[in-house]
Design a protein around this nucleic acid. Structure first.
Lengths: 202, 202
DNA sequence: GCCATTACATACCGATTGGTATGTTTGTGT
DNA sequence: ACACAAACATACCAATCGGTATGTAATGGC
């Protein structure tokens, strides 16, 4: 019997619950301060389950990066940019629409939080976070290049460099708004970034 | 006898040693993960000294913000900007020269690190860090306003908003370079920011 | 020169941490 | 139906955490 029984063991679902709870805990407290006990309390599971699915806290954290955060970025940024026929407009829409998630203003960007905390401390974290960053930059540079071919970005613009700067400013805006705890600052800051993106065309 | 004796007790110096060691520890590991034991090991002092000068770990951290980090920002940014007769050039010089400090690329901006870690968790930290951010933004907005009166910044530019964005991008560039562990990325990213500052004039 | 206070050092505490060893239940292949 | 492995739960561990209580040495006022 493969059909769902409520009391049945569902290892995949259990794993996902652990990943989601770990993501939330890490998003708020950072990786080092994230408490496994707290994560387990939020899932109703125990250490037996955790250490059955993940050999260590670090592996749990890396799995959060590779699976949870990767999926979020792919869905909200990478894929829309890649599939868009109007890359500049799509990028600006993404920058505008990001305010939809309220806890981004409260807790910041999960990827950037982990980068700032873990990159100097753990080479494994740094490499995986860096790989995600690279995909982000590539997706953006690709979008800018396509826009450039459409004549919506000036020819003298170095798209890779522009992409790097946009991401930097992007993360910077999220971080400042998080410190200010202000959605107003968030929007003001992103308006400037949207203007910058527009300035690449004129 | 007030003269310096090597074995004499010098409470001010002791306090400074604690603050400096705490700053270094926090800069690398963050506030939550900063170990008091490690800080004391780096000073040769003990808990008796620490808790004589600071009532708690939080007070130690807040003192690091109020005294150590404040002084660094004032010396390297606030004062140069305030006293400069050519604000735009001075700003660009600061952005260019920041690479002088190598551990900024390795460990990032101490202010931003603490903001990203502590703002959602501790209101006292958030307020003090926010106050420093506000002084930064004011110093930058002032400099841009003076440049605007000199005709070096376009009249339609909102200097306060531009200052907010510059700081965001500033911190973003430092953060990205720290994750990449690359002084090259650091310079590439800041070159874009310097171009942006220049674009305010033309 | 005495004395109170400052400026530390030493020893210890409960709480929490990540991790492990072992037990128990559930699913699966034959 | 039986065996075996997977999927958990329970109980426990050493290490480290921030913090405290107490003791001692140095300093400054009178």
């Amino acid at each position: 019997m493969q059909t769902k029984m409520q009391t049945a063991k569902q290892p995949d679902i259990t794993r996902d619950k652990l990943l989601e709870a770990a993501f939330n805990e890490i998003h708020r407290y950072g990786f080092q301060a994230a408490s496994l006990t707290s994560i387990l309390a939020n899932t109703g599971l125990t250490k037996g389950a955790l250490y059955h699915h993940f050999p260590s806290k670090q592996d749990l954290g890396l799995a959060v990066v590779d699976e949870v955060i990767e999926r979020m970025l792919a869905e909200t940024i990478f894929t829309p940019l890649r599939e868009s026929p109007h890359p500049i407009k799509t990028l600006q829409d993404i920058l505008r629409g990001k305010r939809a998630k309220p806890n981004v203003v409260e807790l910041g960007c999960p990827l950037n939080n982990l980068m700032q905390e873990m990159s100097p401390l753990d080479e494994q974290f740094r490499q995986r976070l860096n790989a995600l960053m690279q995909r982000w930059q590539d997706a953006l540079a690709d979008a800018l290049l396509r826009a450039q071919k459409q004549g919506q970005v000036r020819k003298e613009i170095n798209c890779a460099m522009a992409a790097l700067f946009i991401i930097s400013a992007w993360e910077g805006c999220v971080g400042i708004a998080k410190n200010m705890q202000s959605t107003k600052t968030y929007q003001q800051c992103f308006d400037q970034l949207i203007d910058y993106v527009a300035s690449l065309g004129a």
